[in-house]
Design a protein around this nucleic acid. Sequence first.
DNA 1: GGACAAGCGTACCCAGATCA
DNA 2: TGATCTGGGTACGCTTGTCC
Length: 754
Amino acid sequence: MGKEYEDMRDEYCRVLWDQAESLRFHAHDHSKRLVTVRALVQIACHDDEILTETQAGEIRGVGESIEKTLSKEARHGIPTECGRYATAALAMLSVLYEKKISCIKKKEKDALVSMGELLSKGQSKLESFRKFLALDLILSSPGACTAWAQMQPLESKGFVKRRQRINMEGKLAFELTDDGLEHVKHLLKERIGTGRIQKIEAVRSWHWQNSPFYVIVDHREGGGESVKLGSLTRRLQKEQVPFRTAVLNTGDYLFVRASDNKCFDAIVERKTAVDLADSIRDGRWKRQYTNMVEALNGQQSNHNLDMSGLERIVYLIEGDLKRYVHTQCGCGCMGVGKCGNPTVEKLRQALNEKRKISKVHVVETNHPKATTCWIKSTLEEIARKNGTPLTPTKKRKTSDIQDEVKVQPATVMTPSKKKSATCSKVSYAQLKVAATAWNERDRTQLTKLTLPVLKELCISTGENVSGTKAQIVSRLLEEPEPALLVLRRRQGEYIPRDRTAGHAFLCALDIAHRQGSIGLTKDDLMTRAEELGVFAGESLYYEVGPLGYTGWAVAKDLLSKGAVPLCKRISSSRYALNPIAGVDANRKFISPGTDIAAALHYKAHLRKYCKCKSPPPQTLEATRQITLEDILKDHPSSSNDDKTSTIFFKSTPPTKTKRKQSKGLFDSDDDDDIIYENTASLLPSLPVDDDDVIIYEPTKAPPSPQSISNDSDDDILDLTSDVDSPNSKARRRPPRTSNRSCIDLTLDDSSDSD
DNA sequence: GGACAAGCGTACCCAGATCA
DNA sequence: TGATCTGGGTACGCTTGTCC
């Protein structure tokens, strides 16, 4: 039996409420108080149990200082009053929820609750020692009431809408939004006080006896408080990933075949940002690496496990390093996690050093959820490659059911937005003929095909299906897209269209990223994107209307669209690719912006849009073009067991990828491989025949980077390049905002004007 | 089976409002 | 004052139905 823990959400909210109250009397603490209340509401509305301050600290809006307050002030064993809520946020949501439900039942449209009613009813649902101030006091001084202050974050979260109603008490009325309704339904039921402590058991295993493959989790990960109390094991359980915990000498996770205890694919070391900094500081980083190398070489064993199937080491880095920079010491050390720890730059340097090593992969995720999804997809892929797909719906043992908290039903894989992608009317045989003609670049054969077949082929290869037959055939004869872009489109995730401003920005950022820049300013990005020639319009600076169009409007989409935005602002004035992977609403793994940008940039070179001389290396998994095998394997009627359009994430061992040359175990590779090595293992790959060797046939081989240019890493954009551009008409010279020339593109970031 | 048009959805872009 | 946010318009691409 695992140790029992306590859900601390209510207690943390009490602590933050008290802190917000104490800040009420100091005008200069106003913003600090707002932050505290916002954090309080975030914790109050959090879906899952929060067992530790570390877990609380993972929540958006809960920073380091609040985390510290929680660890100092929170006490265990305080039950919430029976039938009451510990926070005003939940009490008010409960009032609005009841009103909304009654309106839905009565088929009334207006579910508004007046401010006065909200206060009085909310008070009755709140723990007895908490009070809303009187309505007139709140109206005269809205910030005075900490209970009422919790309404604003609820509005910001989109749970509640505020309306002006002159005839209602307080002249304001509130309504639960549809989003809010969906979210609070279970939350309110679960969080109402029972007068006793809710105990939660640490999850130690799930269904591993019944599965052909399972994950072994180091028991310190599975149950250790310092590493977030097995939040990951509960997530594994939620995702129906079979696992058990055990003491591992090396690594945190292993993928094991049940029949013979053989480990497959990777030995995984998970590190949070702070843990990474700590381990570098105290020497564990080197020690653990040496141990893992020995394990990989068969010089070390873990209990009865057969380690011969291990092919690589994976570092799973969880969380944004920058978020944990310690500034409170005031000494200027800027250490991650605590004073004296290495800085973000040092950590990045350490990770980049690991990326240079073949057989070592660094995967960055933004959240334990993304980490879980990576583990799940890797295990699925291992099982699939070894001919025994996971069957998570096997009959459960009673003991397992007892161990369970709440297991969500198996998530349905994201269906394609396009109907035709999943509801193919084209038979496998027809598609095979079409794909073969496509593979051989045979225009005559392609022209003989029917339009539906050609359109199906377009979908499989990621091309648009519109246009006449001749247009479609011509489109299909272009260089194939990188497989990663085809996958992302099918996931319904945002990709800027070809030759738009967004496409150009990502190409420019890709170059900067590979040159080691820590980000580009708006001006710099505009200038570089313009000079690439990727943008099909006259100019990104084209002046239209009183304000003048700068093409910059699309930047907001790059920063916001999709489950994992492609870009991020790294400071108030600098933009960079998002290096961190994540998951979408259906818990499918989403590749990071760095990979998508590399794929788009590579495509721009394949199709001769881009004039630069620094194309992404052909050796990257992100630039792997879609192949005949990919298309056929993905057809619902292919021989594959999986009849859906599910695309697994292949964990391609370096020895089997199309690397030009492997210099041997743990030797540094060419610099070309450095940047993208990190997520190569994550990149999706349509199931491939036989032994997964990816071979480009000479007839369809993409132009090598060398053929496009024989550049070195520090090459510059050669705008005198004789690459034929379809957009070869004279381009308007962008208005210069600085003295930067194209040569500036080679400058390292330190030289960037800001 | 192919071509075409209408209707619809989405990405892109514009322009005014708001924020820092 | 410059940057960002946001709502609305436009163009493009996709789906579906119809006609040849």
